[in-house]
Every structure is written in C-alpha cells, then in structure tokens.
Amino acid sequence: MTTTQPTPIVPAFANVDTDRKLAIICSKGNLDMAYPGLVLANAALGEGVETHLFFTFWGFDMINKKTMADLKFTMLGNTATHMPQALGGLPGMTAMATHQMKKSIEAIGVPEVPEFLQQIVDSGGHLWACRMSADMQHLEEDDLYDAVEAIISAADFIEITAGAQLLFI
C-alpha cells in the first residue's frame, strides 16, 4: 500500500547520539586477532562514535613499527581451522597460513594493519599505548607507530574513556 506523508521522510542523521564513546582494548598480536578491533573501530567511527584504542601486551605488536606489518596467523591451538593440529606444527605452516589469510583479507578490499590504523586515525580515532607494556618491552614513543598519541597508564586510559562502552579483544 502506498502512503503519502505530509512531512518528508528523512533518515535520522541529525539524531546522532554524540555522547556515545567506544573503548577497544587490543591485547593480541596475532594477525587474526588484530582485525576485529580494527574493523569495529572503523565501523564505530563511521557512525559518529568517539573511538579510543588501547594497545597492551601482545597487542603492542600492532603498533610496534618493527612488527606491525608482519603479524602472523597460526593454525596451532586454533581448532577453528578444522585441520589436524599436528599440521600446524610443520615447518612453514604459519608462513603459509599467514599468506593465505592476508590474501583473503586483501581480496575483500580490507587494508593491512598499518594502513588500517591510518584509516582509523584519518576517521578521527585515537590510538594509545600501554605504559606497562612499553616498559616491559623497553620501547619508547619513537619505536611506535607515529599516529599513537601517547604511552599512557591504565588509569589514564580509564579516565580518558569515562562513560565509554568497552571491548576487550
């Protein structure tokens, strides 16, 4: 049935809840575990949500200049590949699995980790590095991706993200 509305039907873009905030804690350094946080951060920013990412422990590999472009995916300990676990331990298997995953990611137009971080920053996202992880790994701001705003303590991050919804990955 066709109805004619007296007032125009317009998407409710004006009603964006500008107070919404999202905090994402990235604690893993495997290629497959880097993407969920990046994809969700990107999506949140595209919806006008203020977004902060905190990189901690193994998640530091995502912002460490030496490792960020070289994250790996392994079948070992990952039953979701539905392959015999022993296969994953064979020489070269991690390199092969990583190569395959990178190819699949590229095929759907999703960028590699460094470029994805840049896109997030260009979209207004904030990147923070964990003080304890930096101290443990003897890393300083110069060792980290340039767009990381600062190395901050866990308490600082909690303060910055007051009122935010939180994701731990």
């Binding site: 004619t4 125009p8 039907i9 317009v10 998407p11």
Partner: peptide, 19 residues
C-alpha cells in the same frame, strides 16, 4: 513502500528515507 515529497520531488523511499 512510502512515498515522500521533498521540495516538490515526489520519491519512493524505504522506511528510513533512502531512495
């Protein structure tokens, strides 16, 4: 589906207002 009129343009839109 609803139609809506915007500045004299009558268009068919979805529930949100997308053409």
């Amino acid at each position: 589906m609803p139609t809506t009129t915007i500045d004299g343009h009558t268009i068919e839109v979805d529930d949100e207002g997308f053409l």
